[in-house]
Amino acid sequence: MKRILVGIKRVVDYNVRIRVKPDGSGVVTDGVKMSINPFDEIALEEALRIKERGGAEEVVVATIGPAETQQQLRTALAMGADRALHVQADGIVEPLVAARALLKLVEREQPLLVILGKQAIDDDNGQTGQVLAALWNRPQATYASKLELKDGTARVTREVDAGLETLEVDLPAVITTDLRLNEPRYVKLPDIMKAKKKPLETLTLSALGVQQRQQLKVVRFEPPPQRQKGIKVRDAAELVDALKKKGLL
């Protein structure tokens, strides 16, 4: 079966104002809205569109994380994913651990494409897709803003610092998404009801034979340094004067 595997992560919603815990052990997440990482939502949307165009028969969504992550898997099923896989893992899941777990799922599911977000907006690591592609020994096309499948290859337009780069990769491959790839659909209420009946399988890291290890220990979280409060000027002339005084013009 032509299958697409999409990885999602549960993160603090992008609209939430982040506060660092006073003891520096992390950021405040109690009572904070959690969502699917926005880049992963784009990954899922892309997979669904490929399926709707007939380019795939099944979209499987997977996550590695704590029990609560099943909320985000249900949302993904409501968006249109056919099945969900939850790999239970507590604590910080580093990219290498996440990628090893995804590799196990890849070996099991044999997808023609794995689509992930280019980064998670919590740890901002931006590694998992590339690490998975390396361990799998398959192509990677990161920061995708356009994706076309044809004859066992994918043509991917990537947002790079210089502009737009196009690569052709043989399938199977790992794609990571940038924001302009698509605009994810909204979930409709009937779909939420339907999603409750879709299969959600729970696995564990150890059952997959993946060790939960942390190679980078958290020493502390700190709030970023605050900028000094600035001044207001009244018009363009005052602005130009102020810049001249600072030696900037």
């Binding site: 290498l96 990628a99 590694q127 592609a133 190679q215």
Partner: peptide, 23 residues
């Protein structure tokens, strides 16, 4: 930590089985 480096280094880290510190 440019699009070039971010794309490449994580792949290098994986092959070295080493942790990557991003940014």
């Amino acid at each position: 930590s440019t699009t070039f480096g971010k794309d490449l280094m994580a792949r290098v880290a994986a092959l070295l089985d080493a942790p990557q510190v991003s940014d």
